[in-house]
Design a binder for these strands. Structure first.
Lengths: 150, 150
DNA sequence: CATTGAAAGTTCCCTAAGGGAACCCCAATT
DNA sequence: AATTGGGGTTCCCTTAGGGAACTTTCAATG
């Protein structure tokens, strides 16, 4: 399957899709986030093909999303989120909120999150980094930025 | 190529990936968001194969993310975001913020967003829907929710 | 010293999904 | 009747994912 190269496009969404959008990648990052950090753990938990898991992990390390480091004198490695990778977990949190709202059905959300700051079970909300007011899809106008093609 | 069925997993992230995570889908939603809403416009702007575009559009309509409606007495249709679909644009905004921060390089972000409420060029920030404090990857603890497997 | 054992990959084949280009259908216009 | 243009289908080809077996590395054990 010839795959279009999203990474070369002049678009932050396309570039993000290039590192984050391949099948399994969000689930791998979720697992690493909650503490499943070794190859065997990830493979067992996800049921992903070992071949693909190898590819994804190397790709994510290459792109600075995960750090691969030994945890034993034997050749054993674990994967941990970098600061860059933690930024992608923000994306996961918004995906979680959306899935909880629109896809959980009668049963309700599979997982709750307790916020350290207030101790409550809650979810994320998008706000403007400048004024703090809500900032959603139709609360903004796009304008050409410095890195635009034109 | 995702032959694995993410939609059946007991995980809001996996379920969201099932509708949002296929190649091209985020870019299609981006285009619809900024006003490119017709088949020919999308195909020309993205350079996507017509076959795949057809598949994706129908899939998104089927899942209630897009609405397909006629705009002419001839058989002409445009695709618009539903409320459910607008929720996925929130995910795009966070992806944009991440791409702007980590992948834009020297050139800077390709696009800026002006926030209606304050008039400033700004980006999104994740905050707790309950207390309003910042809520990021390591500011929460996961707990089993009502829809958990156990 | 040879064996065991487990983690972390490789390798191989098969199938299914994406790319590209040509083709089709329909309704309005000329 | 012929033309035009949007919105798709259909076809073939290539490549990526799934699955399972196999390999490598090194510490610990007998």
């Amino acid at each position: 399957m010839q795959r279009t190269n999203f990474g070369e496009m002049v678009c932050s969404i396309a570039r993000t899709v290039d590192v984050f959008g391949e099948p399994w990648t969000p689930l791998i990052l979720r697992d690493v986030w909650v503490g499943l950090s070794r190859f065997e753990q990830l493979q067992a938990d996800l049921g992903i093909s070992r071949k693909v898991l190898t590819e994804r992990l190397h790709y994510l390390v290459e792109h600075g999303v995960l750090d691969r480091r030994p945890y034993d004198r034997r050749p054993r490695y674990e994967y941990v989120l970098t600061e860059k990778g933690a930024g992608l977990v923000d994306v996961l949190m918004v995906m979680t909120a959306w899935g909880d709202k629109w896809l959980a059905g009668e049963a309700g959300p599979p997982v709750h999150y307790r916020h350290h700051a207030c101790g409550e079970i809650s979810g994320v909300e998008l706000r403007c980094a400048h004024c703090g007011e809500p900032m959603r899809a139709y609360d903004v106008d796009p304008l050409p930025g410095p890195g635009s093609a034109a």
